[in-house]
Design a protein around this nucleic acid. Structure first.
Length: 426
DNA sequence: TCTGGGGTCCTAGGACCC
DNA sequence: TCTGGGGTCCTAGGACCC
């Protein structure tokens, strides 16, 4: 009998695997990759997991341990990981015309088969091919719904006998697996919801499935109900071959050190606006609304303050100087003297595709000015695309040394992107 | 000294209108 | 002058994901 299945393909320890592809000496060693600012651990090799290094652990508390145990440490290198992710997706696209990239290291595939018996050999073939062509090891979970495919993927990772593939098809085995799965581990449930469910003695995925639908809906809202249905094999979360258009674009960073002066915050914000605007243009979008936020460090015992403010642009734009001006005005509105700040950021909202903008009356008189702006941004992005981000930038983010720059003390090279051999152009 | 960043979705409550 | 209900829209806050 032919039918359709969902495959969840998830790269193993993705960031670590990317580093290993280009540095085979890392094979067999404990390896960790740190978040931006070298803040906390966001990827661990199997060896590192075995040593008890936790996901999300602050790196500074582990520094000595890393040194004494020969743990190889990397700052996150998103240029590299993004490129490797695209390669993996290209390989997966050969196995199904219906692919939904879910995150940088996960894809759902819709597999329509004439004969279900071929399913597990197809999954093994996917695994082998991705490994051979990209160097990245993956695991494949197979089931009738996305949520069950995620469960199956966990099992593929955990159970060696599956050789990286696990299928959840028979109702009895599904029930058995759900009875062993903590409800908080289910995709979409999360820690807080798990704690709430525990008060009603719902501790496993099977406990949840056995509750009446209206009860689940009351406790977990409509999204939780969808999850519960999916665990029963009833598709409730759509397969999205074409991802919906983005609703927001943002850029924010924690600083290397805390900052009190407005001038330094303004420099940092200008740089983030430039970066976010670049993303905007890369996706051929324009922003209708700008939001700026800033915050002190919640981990230290100092006076705390955070706020945000929004501004609706007269016409949507992706022109960096206009966006920077709006953002700086907002920052000046919410900035309070006397605090040490940890972070500022910018969000663009009300995004519309470029060229779909309604021209304002005033703008008709400025058509050539708008063309000039677009041309300038095209040149800017072109130069930065060729010579590296930041090769050409605005003076607003400062010419002197930057206290607000993030720490990246363990960065690997940009192996896969162009000009990797050249020093950064200044 | 040192604790990520970028997204999405849902709900409750208030404002406003008829 | 007072009273009512229903609908829509917006926002803030909170939850989730990787």
């Amino acid at each position: 009998m032919g039918s359709s299945w969902i495959a969840m393909v998830d790269c193993n320890n993705f960031y670590v695997s990317c580093e290993r592809v280009f540095d085979p000496s890392l094979e067999g060693c404990p390896v960790v990759v740190l978040s931006n600012n070298d803040g906390c651990v966001i990827a661990r090799s199997e060896e590192a997991k075995t040593m008890g290094i936790g996901m999300g652990e602050p790196a500074f508390r582990r520094r000595k341990f890393f040194e004494s145990h020969g743990v190889r440490v990397f700052s996150s290198n998103y240029a590299l990981y993004g490129d490797m992710s695209a390669r993996v997706q290209q390989v997966l696209a050969r196995f199904s015309p219906e692919v939904e990239p879910y995150s940088i290291d996960e894809c759902f595939l819709l597999l329509r088969l004439k004969d279900d018996a071929a399913l597990s050999s197809l999954a093994k073939d996917i695994r082998k091919t991705v490994r051979r062509w990209t160097g990245i090891p993956v695991c494949v979970g197979l089931a009738r719904t996305k949520t069950l495919a995620k469960v199956a993927n966990r099992l593929a990772k955990k159970r060696a006998e599956g050789q990286g593939v696990w299928m959840l098809d028979r109702p009895e085995t599904i029930e058995q697996e759900l009875s062993r799965l903590e409800v908080g581990e289910v995709w979409g449930i999360g820690r807080k919801n798990a704690a709430r469910l525990a008060r009603y003695n719902v501790r496993t995925a099977l406990d949840l499935v056995r509750r009446p639908r209206d009860w689940v809906r009351r406790q977990l809202s409509i999204t939780g109900l969808h999850t519960a249905l999916e665990l029963q094999g009833i598709p409730a979360i759509a397969f999205q071959e074409h991802p919906p258009a983005a609703k927001s674009v943002t850029c924010s960073r924690s600083f290397g050190v805390r900052i009190g002066e407005a001038a330094a915050l303004e420099e940092a914000l200008c740089a983030y606006v430039q970066r976010a605007a670049e993303k905007l243009r890369g996706r051929r979008l324009e922003a209708g609304v700008v939001q700026v936020f800033l915050a002190t460090n919640r981990f230290v015992e100092e006076p705390q303050y955070s706020d945000s403010a929004v501004f609706s642009l007269p016409t949507p734009t992706a022109y960096t100087p206009l966006l920077q001006r709006a953002a700086l005005d907002l920052l000046r509105k919410i900035y309070r003297k006397g605090y040490l700040y940890q972070k500022v950021g910018v969000l663009f909202l009300e995004l519309i595709p470029r060229g779909q903008r309604q021209r304002s009356f005033a703008e008709y008189g400025h058509a050539s000015e708008v063309c000039r702006q677009e041309e300038l941004m095209r040149v800017l992005d072109g130069v930065n695309g060729r010579f590296g981000r930041g090769a050409l930038r605005f003076a607003g983010d400062g010419l002197g040394p930057k206290a607000w720059h993030m720490r990246q003390e363990h960065l690997s090279r940009r192996y896969t992107t162009r000009w990797a051999e050249l020093p950064v152009v200044r």
